[in-house]
Simulated scan of single mutants.
Amino acid sequence: MRNLTLRSVLLGLAAPVGALVFAALLCAGILAVTGHSPVDTVDAMSASAQRPRTLVNSLNTAVSYYLSAVAVAIGFRMKLFNIGVDGQYRMAALLAAALAGAAFMEGVPPVLRVTMTVLASMLVGAAWAGIAALLKVTRGVSEVISTIMLNAIATYLVSYLNNPARLAEVNPGSNDVKTPDITAGGQVPGFEVTGSSSKVYGLVFLAVLVGFLYWFVLSRTRFGFELKATGLSESAAVASGVSVKKMVVISMLLSGAVAGLVGIPELLGASHSYSLNFPAGVGFIGIAVALLGRNHPIGMAVAALLWGFLFNTANSLDTAGVPREIVDIMQGVIVLSVVVAYELVRRYRVRAEQHAVGHALGRTKTAEEVSA
């Protein structure tokens, strides 16, 4: 276990803090060049952040972002790039919504009904990710290519199933098409916050549990050790008796299962049905959050909260006369800056360690010469 020193802590904070500062300065420059005041932008976002409703919505958004990031991070630990989280969670949300809203579920006890919905979403997500895993271990197909293609297939399959002739119905009084509403017995009540019309998702603790299990499995179990070892060196893992193909399949299944949970807090806590307005693109945001958080459960939580805050304060910029697209620019700059910053810090750390080792060897050699 690495000893915590002031130097190691500062090096750990240098990359994310430096990236955030650089992104803020760059966005301030863009605003100034386009004739907008950076100070007014900060004031608008700060005023929005003080509203309880904004804080609640930021937390709720962060829950989905965090689950998506954990799903991506499981693959990253294995050097697998699961780009298909977006398709996996939308397939899972649609089918889980159809199950939870089915007529026969009315007689099922609430706890069992919610449990069945959560498990169904995990199974669907795992099954969809499992297709890419099987293609990789049996045909050598890159998971990047297969998951991207599966995203496209999931998009059209969801559109096909979310139809009044199949799993959905027309929402009375509108043109929206959605699955049957999940009644009170299948919902998870949220937590009320004074001054906010929105509620904190009742399944916010699901994200906490997933984060804890992610940390525990990877850091405290043999499976986690084998997973990280395989990601670092497949040849060394094989020499140790680890089946690389087995680890690929298990990792993708776990990643898909967590991906299946991404839409569940929104489904059971707010929308209560899957419709055309269901949040999309969360899977791709999870990649950015995982990169920013360096696949660490706490780091990803901070990154998810930051992303949720930026997303929910973007609307306030319109009222201040500032284009809300500046938030998207800032998010992109943060990700690119973090990748570059972490690489620079890594190289500095390697050089510092090499210098320390060389200095220690030189002192040892000098001591041997003196004693001789």
Rank of each mutant, 00 (worst) to 15 (best):
A257C: 08
V244R: 02
S271E: 15
K136V: 00
F278T: 03
R346T: 07
S58Y: 06
V258S: 00
V137W: 03
V42P: 06
S48N: 15
R139C: 00
S243V: 05
R90A: 00
S198V: 01
L20Y: 04
A103L: 13
V70A: 04
V137F: 01
V258L: 03
L123G: 10
A132D: 10
A133V: 05
V188G: 08
E192N: 09
A24Q: 06
A259N: 10
D43T: 15
A47E: 15
N162L: 15
I298K: 09
V177A: 03
G260W: 12
M252E: 03
L206V: 01
P38A: 08
A98R: 04
F284S: 12
G358Y: 11
V200Y: 04
T115Q: 10
S198N: 11
V141I: 13
T366F: 07
A184I: 12
S198H: 09
P323I: 04
L10E: 09
V327T: 11
L213A: 14
G283C: 10
A239G: 09
K365V: 13
C27R: 00
V204F: 12
E106Q: 07
M247F: 06
D43H: 08
K365Q: 13
R346G: 02
N171T: 10
A47Y: 09
L95H: 14
V249M: 11
I326F: 02
S316E: 04
L119W: 07
D86S: 05
S146F: 02
L291C: 07
A93E: 11
G35L: 01
F278I: 02
V242M: 06
K136I: 00
L253W: 00
R2I: 10
L268K: 06
S255R: 03
L119S: 07
A320N: 10
D86Q: 14
L291E: 09
T54S: 01
L4D: 07
A356K: 15
T34I: 03
V238S: 15
Q50N: 13
L80D: 12
T115W: 13
R324N: 10
H36G: 04
R113T: 05
E353S: 05
V158H: 11
P52N: 12
V137G: 08
F22T: 14
A14T: 05
K365L: 15
G263N: 04
A360W: 12
R77M: 12
T117Q: 10
N315C: 04
A290N: 10
A133R: 07
A259H: 11
V17P: 03
R90W: 07
L134R: 14
S8T: 13
S371W: 13
G29L: 00
